[in-house]
């Protein structure tokens, strides 16, 4: 890289940031000077439109296109529900669906619970920052890094050799036979889920820790004066206080779990009955070049997320009522 390259790069970033600020500045300048009549509409558009326009181009249009693709064959001819029929008739389909459900049940709940417990335990303790960084680190590690990290946990070597996977080494220390973790059903799916939990706990912990900091100190102290123990205070004061944060964390992790494909893809390739819907989608759309089938799986994913959407609508309504 030459110095000119570097200047060019910095120039790009600088221009982009300046341009972005300038456009926003202009928008706000005119919004504040909009005629009284219709100012509300102008304001609304100014705040909402930039994001909405990008979303329409980048997500809504592709989503519609994907839905149409789901009803077509390789060449794009309309074939009705064939892709969906294919999905539910191939032998592995039900296993894939079952696995996805198992993932969604376990991963969000466990990472949220551990993240919450951890956030509560370390709250205001000495060295809170160090504690936080330790659990946060997995979030910051690239996926390539995470893959190699877990290789050193699950790797199998026969009993007569030195283990290089920690889990099997522990078994060997206790006089057990090493296990092929990623190949033995059904624990292999569990082993993959653990990787996701390991990553997502840091996310849950950071958000929930921030929420906990927001819980009213007065209430906690009042409860303490009433002679409640730590668990009661947590149940009756902290938990209601961080309800919003909990919903956010659970929802976000659930959606991330539904979309998970790279853990499965790189660790087992979907073999040994560990595949999930998102992984099938990727494989069909890009490896097998069957865009219709891939799209059909994407539609199924979308349907799977609907219950979460409905739940969030209800939470949203409740919030509105409180306010």
């Amino acid at each position: 890289m030459t110095t000119t390259d570097l200047i060019g790069k910095l120039l790009q970033v600088g221009l982009a940031l300046a341009g972005f600020s300038a456009v926003l500045g202009l928008i706000f300048f005119f919004v504040d000077r909009a005629p009284k009549r219709g100012r509300d509409v102008v304001q609304l558009l100014a705040f909402l439109l930039p994001a909405m326009a990008l979303i329409a181009i980048g997500l809504v249009y592709p989503a519609i296109r994907t839905t149409i693709t789901a009803f077509g064959d390789k060449a794009g001819n309309f074939i009705g529900l064939d892709n969906f029929v294919w999905m539910f008739t191939q032998p592995e389909a039900l296993i894939t669906l079952r696995n996805t459900v198992v993932w969604v049940i376990i991963a969000p709940a466990v990472s949220t619970i551990i993240g919450l417990a951890y956030a509560v335990f370390i709250d205001k303790s000495r060295g809170e920052r160090i504690y936080k960084v330790l659990v946060f680190m997995p979030v910051a590690i690239s996926f390539v890094g995470a893959g190699i990290i877990w290789k050193f946990i699950y790797e199998y070597r026969p009993a007569e050799r030195d283990q290089i996977g920690l889990l099997n080494q522990i078994l060997v220390w206790f006089g057990q036979e090493p296990v092929l973790w990623l190949q033995t059903e059904p624990i292999n799916t569990l082993m993959l889920i653990i990787v996701l939990i390991w990553v997502q706990t840091g996310f849950a912990m950071v958000i929930l820790s921030a929420s906990i900091k927001g819980v009213s100190i007065e209430q906690l102290e009042a409860a303490q004066l009433d002679g409640t123990n730590a668990w009661q205070r947590f149940r009756n004061v902290t938990l209601p206080g961080i309800r919003g944060g909990l919903v956010v964390v659970l929802t976000t992790i659930t959606i991330a779990t539904l979309k998970i494909f790279d853990i499965v893809r790189t660790m087992t390739g979907g073999n040994f009955n560990t595949s999930v819907v998102a992984n099938e989608m990727y494989t069909q759309a890009f490896r097998a070049v069957e865009p219709g089938r891939g799209a059909a799986l994407a539609v199924v994913l979308f349907l799977l997320v609907l219950p979460i959407v409905v739940y969030n609508i209800r939470v949203l309504r409740q919030q509105k009522e409180i306010r």
């Binding site: 980048g58 592709p62 296109r65 890009f286 994407a298 979308f302």
Partner: peptide, 22 residues
């Protein structure tokens, strides 16, 4: 409310599906 929920639901659109049109 409806628009918000709609945008919320868009989170599930797999990025892979959006790459080619984009």
């Amino acid at each position: 409310g409806a628009l918000f929920v709609f945008i919320f639901a868009l989170q599930i659109v797999p990025i892979q599906m959006a790459l080619i049109p984009l």
